[in-house]
Each structure stands twice: as C-alpha cells, then as structure tokens.
Design a protein around this nucleic acid. Structure first.
Lengths: 164, 164
DNA sequence: GCATTAGTACTCGGATACGAATTGTCCGAGTACGCCAGG
DNA sequence: CCTGGCGTACTCGGACAATTCGTATCCGAGTACTAATGC
C-alpha cells in the first residue's frame, strides 16, 4: 500500500502546468528543472500522463507538454490513476471457494463480505481524490507563486520574479 | 497502489478464527487447509498478525493461533495494517523546496496542498476500514457457515456438517 | 530580393539495465503430551 | 497401582532464495526553425 514516487511528481507538475500561459508548452527539461527532478525518469511519468489523456504532448523545437483540459476539468484522481493505474487496490481471488472448506459456487452469488469492505474503502479513497481538481490545488497558492511558475514555463532562462 | 495478497488471506483467516470455540487454537496447517493456501507462506503473514497484536500464538502440540481480543474489538484496519504496515501511502518529499524554483523554507510553514489532499484520501480509506470489525464481517455469514468453521477448527479430521 | 531546400537542434517515445520489495520456502528452537520404568 | 522422568511429535519463529515491480537511464524517430543557395 505504498504509492509510487511519481505520483507526487506528476501532481506537482500538473499543478504547475495550470499556470502556463496559453500556447506555452513546457518541455520535460523545463519541468524537471523546476523541481530539480531527474529529467529522464520524469519523462516516463509524463508519458503516462499523456497516454491517460491528462496531458497533450508536441514534438520538435517549441514542443513540450500542456494540460489536455482546463484545470477545473482534471481531478487529482485522474493524475493518480494515470501513474498508478485504475485497477482497484484489492483483488478478490475467491479463496472462500477453495480449500477443504470451499463453499459451493451456487452459494457465492454475491461478492464476499471481505471484498465488499475492501472495495468500499477503495471507493472512499478514490471519491476523496475525485472531489479535488487541479484548479482547487492551484487556487491554494499565492498570486506570486503563479507568476513565478508562469514566468519559468514561458522562458526558463529569464530571471524569476522575486518572492515578496 | 496494489495491496499485498496476504491481506485477503489474513482477513479471511481472522474472520474464520472468530468462529473458533473457546480454548481452541488453530494451527497454521489447519488454517492453510481451510482455504487451500500454501502453509509456509501463510505462516509469514500469521506471524505479522501476532507481532501486530491481532492474534496470539502458542507453540507445541495443541498450539496454534487465536484472536487476541473479541471480534468486536478488532477492526479490519487492524488486520490490514498488520500486513501492509501503518505508514501512510503517500510521503511528501517537499519537492516544492527543491529545484530552480524552490520556495524558501520560511514560506512552507504548512503542509503543501498536494500532500494534504493525498493524506486526506489516505485518512478516508483508513476510516472506512476502521469502521468495520471482524464481528461485523462474521455476522454477514449464515449460521451453517459458522458451524462448519467451528467444526473444522476444532478437529480438521472430522467430517464437516453438510451445506443446507 | 524572394522562394526553395537542405541542415540542425530540439523535442517526445520506446527499448533497455539496475535495485528493492514482495513472494515463496526451508530448517531450527521450544513445548505439551504420551509412554515407560521404578517405587 | 501410582508417580516421576524421558522421549517424541507437533507447534511457531526466524533465516534464506526467486520473482515481480518500481526505479533509473539511454538512444532513436519526428518536427519546426534556421540559414544558405539558386533564381
């Protein structure tokens, strides 16, 4: 029950991309430099985000990544599932139907109580993540943080505006 | 975000042990035979349950495992954390304080929004598991299932009562 | 001066090693029962 | 017949491999800009 390291990276990068001005694409080098992350490995996670439809990628010079939808339309769950996969954390192997005391299949019409509880908890976890969007996260940052992110994404070589 | 296989085994075994008559200890062989599980590997998980204080073990002939408390006093979360560990699923490495756009530490008094959301979801998951006890799970089984489990735990060589 | 075309530099994407954690298995330490010998 | 002691068989606990997954990295495919060249 440990989440991948990439989930944190992906979430921060997605929130940062919400501050990109229209038409600006951020390359993986730009994003990696923003947080001091290994560029090659971050690329792997960015690719996952593209495959999941969270980001859109463009090749060539001036290429890079941007959000596929408005920040209000992307939930934290979208990002997490892009990295971790959307499979439920608990898989019931129906061991109640195996072994010396196996139950006959016709007695196992409904899901077993153990699986039901675990899936309920999994649903609660996902609901909690689905209730928050990138816009919600971005809105918790101060104005100068948005300005810094936008400036860096537009041109990483330009000096950053100072922190008040 | 995938739970260990042992979680399912541990939960089923714990629910089964709730049907053991007073003074009856179930050996790992008995439990493994109940569900057709590999005995040696199941032992590893049972050991974790003992270390977590969910089960009590006794050595020697007539030895085995029993619940450490009444089924009403053991939550599903107790069992899951015994196997998976109680560490939170998300760990914030404070990448916002690293890289080219690192925030100064004096601007990071509170937890970062990303970590807060992830920990909230983790708490929702654990709350959901904490709300259910082994007694709740056991209560969802029909009467004849309790009788079969109790009979097998008391003497695996005795023929099981039939399923109605 | 302008259009065309070849070159270049920069981007993403997939294929490729390495390490750690989970999975799976085995043998040794300890204990209660049963049996045997002695009184 | 009763009691004490020893042996045995069964239990759990920790130590030891194999496999899968997450981590980390590199090189190749593709694209837009740039610059040189011909008209």
């Amino acid at each position: 029950m440990k989440l991948s390291q990439g989930v944190e990276w992906a979430l921060h990068c997605a929130v940062t991309l919400a501050d990109a001005e229209d038409g600006i694409l951020a390359s993986r080098r730009t994003l990696a430099g923003y947080y001091g992350l290994p560029e090659a490995y971050l690329a792997k996670h960015l690719k996952s985000l593209v495959q999941a439809g969270v980001l859109v990628a463009a090749s060539g010079p001036r290429g890079g990544f941007r959000l596929a939808r408005a920040p209000e339309q992307i939930t934290v769950l979208d990002v997490v599932e892009a990295i971790e996969g959307s499979a439920p954390s608990f898989v019931c192997t129906e061991i109640r139907q195996r072994g010396a005391c196996a139950l006959p299949p016709d007695r196992c019409t409904g899901p077993c109580p153990v699986a039901r509880i675990m899936l309920d908890a999994d649903r609660a976890w996902r609901d909690s993540l689905r209730a928050v969007t990138l816009a919600d996260l971005s809105g918790q940052l101060p104005e100068w943080a948005h300005a810094r992110a936008g400036s860096w994404l537009a041109d990483p070589s330009k000096p950053l505006p100072p922190v008040p």
